[in-house]
């Protein structure tokens, strides 16, 4: 088995790489599709702004690559901004088109609830998961645990079937998303203690296997 980490210059690759090492999962990091074209599964990390990230993905030749791999059914795990890029578009820094692999858009947390009370943005800290689809392989032995969120933009979708788990922060925050072999989480699994490590392990050892 080999996991490919997609390096388009926008991720905290060090932490996710080290997390895979702790799990004894072989991986390679590539900044061009040809360097990691034969992997059995991929991780799409991401920290930063949506428009910069889409541009960087394109510059590194990964847009078509990711879409092809998804079509072939190769498992892919998007993390944080890497998750948001998989949706149709984002309003971060003006409307920007995403990869369109999940139905829905990315919007800023309004910062005001329905009663007009303001709340803090970013959504930062440990929040509890509400598991919607416990039968998914990715969620093997993952309970309603706390995971670490840090984000100002959030997924908005009217397709509940892609929501594996959510979390409550003034609205229902999509936390773990999936459809077929394409999965993603808003939080960083590599920074979310044991439940986070379990998710990464499930991705690598249950979804990717071999």
């Amino acid at each position: 088995m080999m996991i490919g980490i997609i390096d388009y210059g926008m991720g905290n690759l060090f932490s996710v790489s080290k997390a895979l090492e702790r799990l004894d999962v072989p991986y390679k990091v590539g900044d061009r599709p040809e360097k990691i074209s034969e992997c059995d599964g991929y991780i799409l990390p991401g920290v930063g702004a949506f428009p910069d990230a889409m541009k960087a993905l394109g510059d590194h030749g990964f847009i078509t690559f990711i879409k092809e791999k998804v079509n072939e059914g190769v498992p892919i795990y998007g993390i944080c901004l890497g998750m948001q890029l998989l949706f149709e578009s984002s309003e971060e820094g003006g409307q920007t088109e995403g990869l369109g692999l999940f139905p829905g858009t990315i919007v800023k947390f309004p910062g005001v609830d329905e009663n007009g009370n303001s709340y803090k943005v970013p959504h930062m800290g440990w929040n509890r998961l509400n598991i919607h689809q416990p039968d998914k392989g990715l969620l093997n032995e993952v309970g309603e645990d706390f995971v670490y969120f840090v984000h100002s933009f959030v997924v908005q979708t009217d397709h509940p079937e892609i929501l594996y788990a959510t979390s409550d922060y003034h609205l229902e925050v999509p936390a773990i998303i999936g459809r077929g072999n394409l999965v993603a989480s808003q939080f960083h699994p590599e920074k979310s203690g044991e439940p986070g490590m379990r998710l990464l392990e499930n991705f690598c050892k249950v979804m990717v296997k071999q």
Binding site: F14, K18, E190, K191, G193, E194, G196
Partner: peptide, 11 residues
């Protein structure tokens, strides 16, 4: 920083 990030899964 590198050592801490290598061994811990909290921010």
């Amino acid at each position: 920083v590198r050592s801490v990030a290598s061994e811990l899964a909290i921010p």
